[in-house]
Design a protein around this nucleic acid. Structure first.
Length: 479
RNA sequence: CGGGGUGUGGCUCAGUUUGGCUAGAGCACCUGGUUUGGGACCAGGGGGUCGCAGGUUCGAAUCCUGUCACCCCGACCA
């Protein structure tokens, strides 16, 4: 795909400047507009429709596992935020504070939620009394605020949309099971719906969530070889239930602290879709998430009957998929580019010559392949094509990911790869945070995760210090 | 938060060094016409108190002071 002729001049090519390419795509695909507050973006209809599709599908999958949705307040009293020590320390540098109500200073300042663990805990301590009240498997869809210093659309904004699940369980086993279940749900969602392969694994102590006992993550590889954390699931054990006093009476009439989890996915996923699938002509959307799956573009639309036929084809397609007709008075070339920048998976070209011959031309966004298709079978052909595109997009992304995983057996190899080969580095680790710090300082590479499904012993010693190795770790430069 | 940069129609910018006619261009927008298989063309038209507040001056987009915002590069983050 890298060699293909560049058809859209408005987008910087990926190889020239990946960061600029990303920004160009976000803007040209009409996903967002910048707002008057730094780091806060206006999500436009095409961007928001992607989020809505993500939301619908995730929510459906959540509910199939017993999740119930709630809504919590957006303000957290300072005293509440401070109950769990690691948690405050983790978030304090980036919270926004409300200090006044109208003209009067507040007696206690309120933080705009950066995440809602503390609110859920404060709530759970009141509603959980008996083992019969457990488990609680609540989730909320909302926005959160983190006062980031450097911001980028979707990847790092000061306000972003997400879902946060917060659960309380009777036993450690139940909590662990839920933590893993949600991580797998996320991973399956990314692979099946977003066509984005992910590595499932556990974060190291250094990288885990503030206040968690264990943090599990899915890590995806972007086109430029950088990693993006695409979802997380945390097991809190009793780290929150103890300071918050969330206790229940068990079957033996003993008081017990609950075991908790939390898990989240954000609008950052849209950034991931862009950077995993996009090309120099713009966005490439996986069919299952695309707001418009097929666009019908009439050629010489002012000729007798063309627009009518195009509208008819669009209406037929619209019965089984998300179809749109571009009947604006732009030139066809314009419409092609527009459809491409927006990443619409399939376009149907239909002109007088086609109509006469009873056919149309289907064009794949991902490969630009043109396919002649009889008008009689356009619904089935397009439906099949969408399936094919979905499948092949995943395979291509996986092939790219797999070809950018490199093994390092010692520090010389590690350094060489980090400096010259963008991608994941697979290397053994002794378990000592000092090695993580050294690697980060020397090479700007961080530990992404200790993968669940890949614990091959590629060496007996830590690639950094040479001491006996404990774990295989995926390392990488991250967003 | 530290270093650097930029603010001029919706967008990208010229003009600022060396103050001086009615503040310009391209794109976008509106109207009419010709076009239409990879970002068409012609003609006409609308839109800017030059980020904001002071100051210097006969005169400020241009000089001075302050201030705000945004962008880029570093330390923290889904």
């Amino acid at each position: 795909m890298a060699q293909e002729k560049k058809l859209v001049e408005a987008i910087t090519s990926m190889s020239e400047d990946f960061a600029q390419w990303y920004t160009d795509v976000v803007v040209k695909a009409d996903l967002i507009a910048y707002s008057s507050v730094k780091g806060c973006m206006i999500i436009k209809p095409d961007g928001y429709a992607i989020w809505e599709n993500i939301q619908h599908e995730l929510d459906r999958r959540f509910k199939a596992t017993g999740v119930q949705n709630v809504y919590m307040p957006m303000f957290i009293p300072e005293s509440l935020l401070q109950v769990e020590k690691d948690h405050v320390e983790g978030f304090a540098p980036e919270v926004a504070w409300v200090t006044h109500g109208g003209l009067n200073p507040l007696q206690e300042r309120l933080c705009v939620r950066p995440t809602s663990e503390t609110l859920f805990c404060d709530f759970y301590k009141d509603i959980i009394h008996s083992h019969r009240d457990l488990p609680k498997v609540y989730n909320q869809w909302c926005s959160v605020v983190r006062w980031e210093k450097e911001t980028r659309p979707f990847l790092r904004s000061r306000e972003f949309l997400w879902q946060e699940g917060h659960t309380a369980h009777a036993t450690a086993e139940d909590a662990e099971e839920r933590t893993v279940q949600m991580l797998n749900l996320y991973a399956d969602f990314c692979e099946e719906v977003l066509a984005m392969p992910v590595v499932r694994g556990q974060k190291t102590e250094k990288e885990k969530f503030a206040g968690a006992e264990a943090t599990y993550t899915i890590e995806a590889l972007m086109h430029d070889g950088k990693a993006l954390q695409s979802g997380t699931s945390h097991n809190f054990g009793q780290n929150f239930s103890k300071p918050f006093g969330i206790q229940y009476t068990d079957k033996n009439n003993q008081l017990q602290y609950v075991h908790q989890t939390s898990w989240g996915m954000t609008t950052r996923l849209i950034g991931a879709i862009i950077m995993v699938h996009g090309d120099d002509s713009g966005l490439v959307l996986p069919p299952r998430i695309a707001p418009t799956q097929v666009i019908v573009i009439p050629i010489q639309q002012k000729k007798e009957g063309v627009l009518e036929k195009a509208a008819e084809v669009c209406e037929r397609l619209g019965k089984t998929m998300r179809a749109k007709l571009d009947d604006s008075d732009k030139s066809p070339g314009w419409k092609f580019s527009e459809a491409e920048m927006r990443g619409i998976p399939v376009r149907v070209e239909l002109g007088p010559k086609d109509i006469e011959a009873g056919k149309c031309v289907l064009v794949r966004r991902d490969t630009r392949e043109k396919i002649e298709c009889s008008l009689d079978e356009v619904e089935t052909k397009v439906a099949e094509l969408l399936e094919t595109i979905q499948k092949e997009m995943f395979e291509r992304a996986k092939a790219h990911r797999d070809s950018h995983i490199f093994d390092a057996h010692n520090y010389a190899e590690f350094t060489e790869i980090a400096n010259n080969k963008p991608g994941f580095i697979r290397a053994m680790w002794c378990g000592d945070e000092a090695c993580e710090n050294k690697i980060k300082e020397d090479l700007a590479v961080t530990s992404r995760c200790m993968p669940f499904n890949d614990q091959e012993q590629i060496s007996d010693v830590c690639a950094c210090c040479g001491k006996p190795a404990k774990k295989l770790v995926y390392w990488g430069k991250a967003y």
